[in-house]
């Protein structure tokens, strides 16, 4: 019996955002957009979904006079990502 993959993480863009944030302390919205190659609109929708689930926190601030959106992963998001990896290992039959 395979464990269930978190449906919130089992989406290409949301998974890419989470993978990017898991290895960084925080990342600005334009950086995530550039790294994932997503459109600003689509990315914004997916970021909102992750934020609503409590997986990431979004901070809207200013860099000089320009508005700046900073995303960072929460402890809940880290746990969810780890659980997702464990489930993935079961699917791929990785024992380590």
């Amino acid at each position: 019996m395979f464990p269930t993959l978190d449906p919130l993480l089992h989406s290409e863009l949301r998974l890419a955002v989470m993978s990017l944030l898991i290895s960084t302390e925080e990342a600005e919205f334009p950086y995530i957009k550039e790294q994932t190659g997503a459109t600003a609109g689509n990315l914004s929708v997916q970021v909102d979904k992750l934020s609503a689930a409590g997986y990431i926190e979004v901070e809207k601030t200013f860099k000089g006079k320009k508005p700046c959106t900073i995303c960072r992963i929460t402890p809940t998001g880290q746990k969810a990502f780890e659980a997702y990896i464990q489930a993935l290992k079961a699917y791929l039959n990785i024992t380590k």
Binding site: L5, P7, S11, E12, L13, A38, Q46, L88, Y91
Partner: peptide, 10 residues
Amino acid sequence: MEENLNMTAE
């Protein structure tokens, strides 16, 4: 990168 919910584990 678009929304795709039918991803394989790979």
